[in-house]
């Protein structure tokens, strides 16, 4: 690693101020960023640690019944919460127990790895990403692989999830990395079903609208079985699986998520 300075602000306001420095980068749980720094793929001059910001840790419900999760809340805490079953189930299978004790929801969403789990939950729930400056709808937040609507220096302070009637996340793990080769999050709300796919597309997490329409008409695995798999064009094509293979998995995992939704 190249050396850098670590700053540990005591408040969100101090963190935002520290982020305004040259080459400053936010440090969430570090479970992706630290390996990246070790490979010298990033060379910030300052890391602004968000782990100690108690105002960004915790889970509660707002007046609209949404589950509000602080940006520095760990995967382990979300897994243990259980008030949104599909979301807690997803969090309980990210990485491994030690990783879940450090990694944070804000860090994952800010990084927007194309194979990460949380982006599927946020997009599949129509969540709201709250930053120090504004609120961003999930549909407007994910812009492509590792790209988000966040501005330079902007920090995710909270994520608000409407809680669906039924939900489930199914992940087909890449056997070596245990990341999602394909992951599908399905959530059934009173006003419609959302289906979000991670791991598959070269443009990152996205919604499978054909499946949403079919499930709006008939929320069952049979409705998915009757669909054509999405096109393999634009799907990730690498040594772990072809684009067509991933497209096939999208259909299979969607069917499984619908069947398991509770």
């Amino acid at each position: 690693m190249y050396d850098f300075e670590i700053q540990k602000p005591g408040s969100i306001a101090d963190a935002v101020s520290a982020m305004s420095g040259d080459d400053a980068q936010a440090l969430g749980g570090g479970q992706t960023l630290i390996p990246t720094l070790k490979q010298r793929l990033a060379s910030p001059s300052t890391l602004v640690s968000l782990a100690g910001l108690s105002e960004m840790v915790g889970i509660c419900k707002d007046d609209a019944g949404r589950l509000c999760i602080g940006g520095a809340t760990t995967h382990a805490a979300v897994a243990a919460d259980g008030s949104y079953a599909g979301l807690s189930g997803l969090a309980s299978h990210i990485g491994d127990p030690a990783v879940r004790n450090r990694g944070t929801i804000g860090g994952s969403l800010a990084n927007n790895d194309p194979s990460a789990c949380y982006p599927a939950a946020a997009l599949g729930s129509g969540a709201t990403i709250v930053t120090n400056a504004r609120e961003i709808a999930a549909d407007d937040y994910f812009l492509g692989m590792f790209e988000t609507a966040l501005n330079e220096g902007e920090i995710i302070t909270e994520v608000k999830f409407p809680i669906p009637e039924k939900s489930n996340y199914q992940k087909f793990v890449q056997p070596a990395s245990r990341f999602a080769l394909v992951g599908v999050f399905v959530a059934k709300y009173a006003d419609g079903v959302r289906v979000a796919v991670t791991g598959a597309s070269e443009s990152g997490v996205h919604r499978w609208t054909a499946a949403e329409e079919a499930l709006n008409a008939n929320f069952s695995a049979d409705a998915i079985a009757g669909l054509d798999a999405p096109s393999g064009d634009g799907m990730i094509n690498d040594l772990h699986g072809s684009g067509d293979y991933r497209a096939h998995l999208v259909k299979v995992m969607t069917g499984r998520a619908v069947a398991a939704a509770s």
Binding site: I6, K8, L27, G30, Q31, I34, P35, K38, L47, S49, A51, G52, A76, D96, P97, A98, V99, N101, R102
Partner: peptide, 25 residues
Amino acid sequence: TSQCGACVVHVNGEAVKSCTMFAAE
């Protein structure tokens, strides 16, 4: 590289990979 877990220690009672946490934290 955060994979093997040989470096697991407890920090405030929770298992963490000590190779993937900064001492300053």
